[in-house]
């Protein structure tokens, strides 16, 4: 149930984000979801793409520093309190959320929340038990 996410190091310099996005565009890779974590000195671009292998190849060719990580994609109802419920069950289990970001799927009336926690496996179990829908990788890639 884990989704592959690719994280890329970005130096805080003009045009660096463009270079990455451009490299992916040239390789005809569509970005499904993205977020940027930034500090005053550098940033981390996190993306979800339909074909992580192709994206890695393009990034390697471009000479970027990146890695691949597992994340969970959770579907929460696009209503107030949707996200709060998911976070509450994780918190009860003592699971820390490292970061998250969200996007809205075109197909469903649902918000998709991308989650990285310190315990991915038990997060999946906990969320499932609480009846929160976890979106399988295939679906995420084709959203």
């Amino acid at each position: 149930m884990k989704v592959k996410q690719i994280s890329i190091f970005l130096e805080n310099k003009q045009g660096h984000l463009l270079e990455v996005v451009d490299a992916l565009a040239k390789a005809k890779i569509n970005i499904r979801a993205l977020s940027i974590a930034d500090t005053s000195e550098f940033g981390i671009l996190r993306i979800i793409v339909p074909d992580p292998e192709a994206a890695k190849k393009a990034l390697k060719k471009g000479g970027f520093t990146f890695n691949e990580n597992d994340i969970i994609a959770v579907g929460v109802s696009d209503t107030p309190g949707g996200l709060a419920k998911a976070l509450a069950v994780l918190s009860e289990e003592g699971i820390n959320v490292e970061y998250l970001y969200a996007f809205v799927s075109k197909a469903e009336e649902k918000a998709v929340v991308v989650l990285k926690t310190d315990k991915l496996e038990s997060s999946i179990k906990t969320l499932k038990k609480a009846g929160i829908s976890i979106i399988p990788p295939k679906e995420v890639y084709s959203l």
Binding site: Q5, S7, F9, A37, T39, F42, I44, R46, T65, F66, N67, N69, E98, Y99, K116
Partner: peptide, 15 residues
């Protein structure tokens, strides 16, 4: 220079 080994998807770890 950030090497592959130093890099992480989490800001905290890079810091």
């Amino acid at each position: 220079e950030v090497s592959q080994k130093m890099f992480s998807d989490e800001v905290r770890r890079i810091e």
